[in-house]
Design a protein around this nucleic acid. Structure first.
Lengths: 340, 340
DNA sequence: CTGTTAGCGCTTTCAA
DNA sequence: TTGAAAGCGCTAACAG
C-alpha cells in the first residue's frame, strides 16, 4: 500500500503550512495570495493529492453519503427508484448506500443502526411495511438526521417529509376510465389491506363508483397480496357462483391483473372481449410481450429523484417549500379495457 | 443535533480511561478485568453508545465499505447482481456504494475516483465497455486496493481476480441443443463484437457448428447491439434475398431474440413451427407473458454474491484459492426450438 | 495573507 | 489489568 499523500506532504512540497493548503483545497476565504494558490494547485495536481474524506468528515461532521433503504432492488419499481436516487446523489456529490430489507422489520432496524453508525447525512426510506412504526426512526428523528419517506406513512412522524404517489387519485382515474367505457359491474382485487397504498387504491375505486352512482357488489371486491398467484386465486373466488357477474376487473397491481388474466383465459373467457382488465404499476417489458394491461403508471424514477432532492435540501439546511410531494397518476391505455 | 455520545463519556461514566473502554469495545486483549468489562458493557448498553466509525477508520485504515460499479441497476441482470452483492456485504458487515455508469468511460473513471476518495476497502466492477482499459484501475492496482471484476476482461490486468460466466460454453450448449433438434441451417445474431462476451458467444456457436461438421453460411451470421430493435433489423438482413435459408435462429441475447421473433411473426412466419428461436440471458417475467424463448441462463445473483465473497477474502488479506471463477451455463428449454 | 495550535473520536504503543 | 500519551489527516479559530 503506497502511503497516500497527505496535506502535510503538499505543505512541505510548497513550503507553506498545512492551513494554507487546506484553504486552497476548500477554496475558502479568498485570503490566500494568488501566487500561492496557483503554486499549491499545481503541486496538488502534479502529485495527485486527494484530501482524506474521513479526516474531513471527522471535523465537519458531514460525510456526503446517504442511506437508501428499500425492500428489494430486484423489483422493477424499486430499481427505477434506486436509479433516480443515485442519479441525483451523484449530481450533488453524494454517494449512496443501498440496503435491501425484503420489507422485514428487523432488517429495517438493523440497517437504520448501520447507517447511523456510518454517519450518513440523510436517509431515504421506503417499505410496504407499516404495521408498526420503527423505534429506530425516532432515534433518527431525535438526532435530527434528515429523513425522507418514499411512499410510506408513519403515524408517529406525521411531519416527516416524503414523496408520495397519489394512489387514491390513480384508482379514481382508472375506475372512471372503466366506467366511461360503459362497464357497471366491476370487480376489484385489492392489495393487502395492511398496506396504506392498497387501502388508498381500494378507497379510490369505491368512492369513484359511488360518485358515479354505481353500486358496488361486495362479493366483487376481494383482497389479494400483490403477487401473481393471488390474482389468479381471486378469480376463482369471483367465479365461485358460476358465471361472472362482472364485465371488467381492476386489480391493485399489474401482477395480480396478470394472474387474473391467466385464470380467466384458462377458464375460457376472452380478454378483453368478454372481460376487460386493468391494473396498477405499468410494469413494462419488451414490446413483443403479451398480454398488455391498461394500467396506472407509478413514476418510480421520479419518486426516487425528487425524494433525493428533498433530502438534499434538508441536509443543506434549506427550508422545504413543501414537505410532502404527491405525484399524480397517469393512465396508460393498452387496450385491455373495451367499450361495452 | 443532540451531541453524540463519545468514548470519553463512557470512560467518565465508568471512571476508567478511554483506552480501557476502547479495549472492551473491540473486545481485544482479554487483558481487562472481568468486572470492568461487565461494568463498561452495561453502561454502553444503557446509554446506547456507538463508536464513531469515521474515527475508527481514520486509525485502522479500513472502512468496511465497498464500491459496486455497474452500467444500470434497471437492467434486470444487474439488479439480480446488485442484490447478490448487497446480501453478501451485509452478512459480512460491509456496506455497499452503488454506482451506475451507463457503461460510459468517463462516468466509470469518475466513480473510481469518488470511491477512492471515500476510501472503500474494495471495488467490484462490471461493464460491457472494454474498448480501452481504464487508467484509474491502474491507480487502484498501484494502491493495492482489492479489485474484483465481474464479467470483465482487461488485458492490462490479466491477474486481477474476477467472476465470469462461461459465454463460450453457454453458446456451445445452446448450439448443440439446436443441432440435436435436427437443425442444420442456423442463423446467428451476435451482440456487438466490441464486447468480449459477444465474441465468446459467437465463437462458441461457430466452433460447435464446426465440431458437428456443419458448415456455417456467412450470410447467416450478423451483428447486433443487444437491443430489441437490432434483433428486428437483423431479420430483415437475413431475409434480404427472399425466403429464409435457415430453420433456426440463435440470438446473442433474449432481447434480440424477441426482436427477431417480432419481425418474423410480422412477416408471416410461425415461431417455432416455421423457424425456431433461442436466446441468452433467461430474462424472466411473470409466467403469463408470451412468447417464451429457449435460452441460456446467466446467474446474475450468483455472480454478484461470489464476486463479493472473493473481494471480501481479498480485503481480509486471505489468499484466494482461485482468482478467477467461471460459472457454467444452464439451458432453459421453453419450447421455442422444435425438432425437425 | 499566512502560520500556530487545538482538537474531531478513536486505537495503540509504552509504562506503570 | 489499566492509564497516559501520541497520533490518524484534516479544519478552524486565533494570532501575527
Amino acid at each position: 500500500m503506497a502511503e497516500p499523500i497527505t496535506i502535510k506532504d503538499i505543505a512541505n512540497l510548497c513550503g507553506v503550512s498545512i492551513a494554507t493548503v487546506s484553504r486552497v483545497v476548500n477554496n475558502s476565504p479568498k485570503g490566500v495570495g494568488e501566487k500561492t494558490v496557483e503554486r499549491i494547485r499545481k503541486v496538488i495536481e502534479e502529485v495527485g493529492y486527494r484530501p482524506n474524506r474521513l479526516a474531513q468528515s471527522m471535523i465537519t461532521k458531514v460525510t456526503h453519503t446517504i442511506g437508501l433503504v428499500i425492500p428489494d432492488v430486484r423489483n422493477p419499481f424499486f430499481s427505477e427508484l434506486v436509479r433516480g436516487v443515485e442519479d441525483v446523489c451523484n449530481e450533488n456529490g453524494y454517494s449512496c448506500f443501498l440496503c435491501n430489507t425484503d420489507g422485514k422489520l428487523d432488517k429495517e432496524n438493523e440497517y437504520i443502526d448501520i447507517l447511523r453508525d456510518r454517519i450518513v447525512d440523510g436517509l431515504l426510506f421506503t417499505t410496504q411495511n407499516n404495521k408498526e412504526s420503527n423505534p429506530a426512526f425516532l432515534d433518527f428523528h431525535r438526532n435530527k438526521t434528515p429523513l425522507c419517506f418514499i411512499e410510506r406513512y408513519v403515524d408517529e412522524l406525521p411531519e416527516t417529509p416524503g414523496v408520495f404517489f397519489d394512489n387514491e387519485g390513480g384508482a379514481a382515474l382508472l375506475t372512471q376510465f372503466v366506467l366511461d367505457k360503459g362497464h357497471r359491474n366491476i370487480a376489484f382485487i385489492s392489495g393487502p389491506l395492511s398496506t396504506m397504498n392498497a387501502r388508498m387504491r381500494k378507497s379510490g375505486f369505491m368512492s369513484t363508483m359511488q360518485s358515479n352512482g354505481v353500486e358496488v357488489d361486495a362479493r366483487l371486491v376481494v383482497e389479494g397480496n400483490y403477487r401473481l398467484d393471488s390474482g389468479y386465486a381471486a378469480v376463482d373466488q369471483l367465479l365461485e357462483h358460476g358465471k361472472p357477474k362482472f364485465t371488467a376487473l381492476i386489480a391493485g397491481n399489474d401482477l395480480m391483473a396478470l394472474g387474473a388474466y391467466q385464470a380467466l383465459v384458462e377458464r375460457g373467457y376472452q380478454v378483453p372481449s368478454d372481460i376487460s382488465i386493468a391494473g396498477f404499476d405499468n410494469i413494462t417489458y419488451p414490446a413483443v410481450f403479451r398480454p398488455l394491461i391498461t394500467t396506472i403508471e407509478i413514476p418510480g424514477y421520479k419518486l426516487g429523484s425528487c425524494g433525493t432532492e428533498m433530502l438534499i435540501a434538508l441536509m443543506k439546511g434549506q427550508p422545504l417549500a413543501v414537505t410532502r410531494q404527491v405525484f399524480a397518476a397517469a393512465l396508460r391505455d393498452k387496450g385491455s379495457v373495451v367499450q361495452i
